[in-house]
């Protein structure tokens, strides 16, 4: 049986995708990134993070883009007020519960946010290590603080 194509509009952009595609995948095709945290292409949709919620015309509830299959003529708004509020709330809740340690306090306090840890780490490794350079390409920061 031939797969039919479905056309829909996401954030004002028209896009055509095969039947059975999710709104998240359709948005990706349209060049629109809908934020998501618990989604992985190789796994079945899970619906835990609630970050990919979108509004759809005619639908009284918010839809999870990762788990919703496209319908012909669907009009989706990933940045509608209600969807944005729910998304922002998800991040406020997550960050409020996140005992993370993004950057060393030295980097935060430095007015220029210089990454001094990088060369300090290199110096600690000793003179036989790769050249100690004040040159610091962007990339991985040293290992996290262990407790």
């Amino acid at each position: 049986m031939e797969a039919k194509n479905v056309s829909l509009t996401i954030d004002g952009v028209k896009v055509e995708v095969p039947e059975g595609t999710t709104v998240l995948a359709a948005a990706e095709k349209a060049g629109i990134e809908i934020p998501n945290l618990c989604f992985l292409k190789s796994l079945a949709p899970y619906g835990a993070c609630g970050v990919c919620v979108v509004e759809a015309e005619g639908c009284p509830k918010l839809l999870r883009a990762c788990a919703t299959t496209v319908r012909e003529g669907m009009v989706v708004n990933s940045k509608g007020e209600r969807a944005l509020k729910a998304r922002k709330l998800a991040f406020e809740l997550l960050m409020g519960d996140h005992d993370g340690d993004c950057l060393g306090p030295c980097k935060i306090e430095c007015p220029a946010h210089t990454d001094c840890q990088k060369y300090v780490g290199e110096i600690a490794e000793g003179p036989t290590a790769r050249s100690t350079s004040a040159r610091s390409p962007k990339g991985a920061s040293p290992t996290p603080l262990r407790r």
Partner: peptide, 12 residues
């Protein structure tokens, strides 16, 4: 505890 809004939201 599966979804963020309920798990953390109800707690808050």
């Amino acid at each position: 505890g599966k979804c963020v809004h309920c798990r953390i939201g109800t707690r808050r």
